[in-house]
Design a protein around this nucleic acid. Sequence first.
DNA 1: GCTTTATAGTTTCATTTGAAACCAATTGCA
DNA 2: TGCAATTGGTTTCAAATGAAACTATAAAGC
Lengths: 146, 146
Amino acid sequence: MTDHAPLELERFLPYRLSILSNRVSQAIAQTYQDRFDLSMTEWRVMAVLARYDSDGLSAREVASRTEMDKVAVSRALTRLVAARRVARKTHAGDKRRSVLRLSAAGWKVHDAIAPLAREHERTMVAKLTTDEQRALESILDKLAPV
Amino acid sequence: MTDHAPLELERFLPYRLSILSNRVSQAIAQTYQDRFDLSMTEWRVMAVLARYDSDGLSAREVASRTEMDKVAVSRALTRLVAARRVARKTHAGDKRRSVLRLSAAGWKVHDAIAPLAREHERTMVAKLTTDEQRALESILDKLAPV
DNA sequence: GCTTTATAGTTTCATTTGAAACCAATTGCA
DNA sequence: TGCAATTGGTTTCAAATGAAACTATAAAGC
């Protein structure tokens, strides 16, 4: 009988990480998917537009900020623009680029969802000791630097 | 100017978690996708079959262990059985259930991939202090209990 | 026993996703 | 200049995915 040394999945970090991440994202998504007819990718695009509002982002910048590919971003934007949640202009100096910003309606949606998301984060973090909370921060800093 | 309080994505835990998880899974998948013509879901099924080899699992059990839905499992199994990496019999006492086990060929693939996966985990964990390593364990225990 | 209800697994169909091809505008450079 | 290479973004087509319907078997109620 050879020794196969199977992975102990229940202790394998990448596996557990993926389960945790899926559960959390899914839980948050539940709070807005139906209520606002908004997909997770769309919400991410909106969150990035809200966060880096300064003078309008290009689709390319949104893609790199969200770590989504440009096709996904393009499609999310198509829907968001159609729903008038995002305003799309053409960049003055470079006609290839778009200049994206949340519209008033977009901000309204954002302002409804952001607190719910934050609340989710809070209840999640609340399950950890302060030591663990600190550790989690630095773990993420090290493993997934921005 | 109203205050919109956008999420600071780069600090928002669910977001960072999802990025980390995607990067890690993706990196591991790279090591086997092309080389073994194996998708991530197929690998997960194989890993579970390896781990709980005892007396053969049903598709249902695989689904619950992997946290994948039964359709995904059914499809992964179709390919794995066709590739002769998994042997599928019918359960003696219950003809609805299948009895699934890795074949010799399946074990061979498993034994090639498992060390690579483990190695990935090692290099990832090596970036953390021992305190952080301990913390990560207990964080996962608390947030994503098995 | 016979009928309803539940379970294991597959198939179907509609939607989502990703890779590659594509278009248009810009940049690099001979 | 003018033409090749690059970049921003969209479209197309094939593969992956999920929900619901379906098949076959088993268990439960009467």
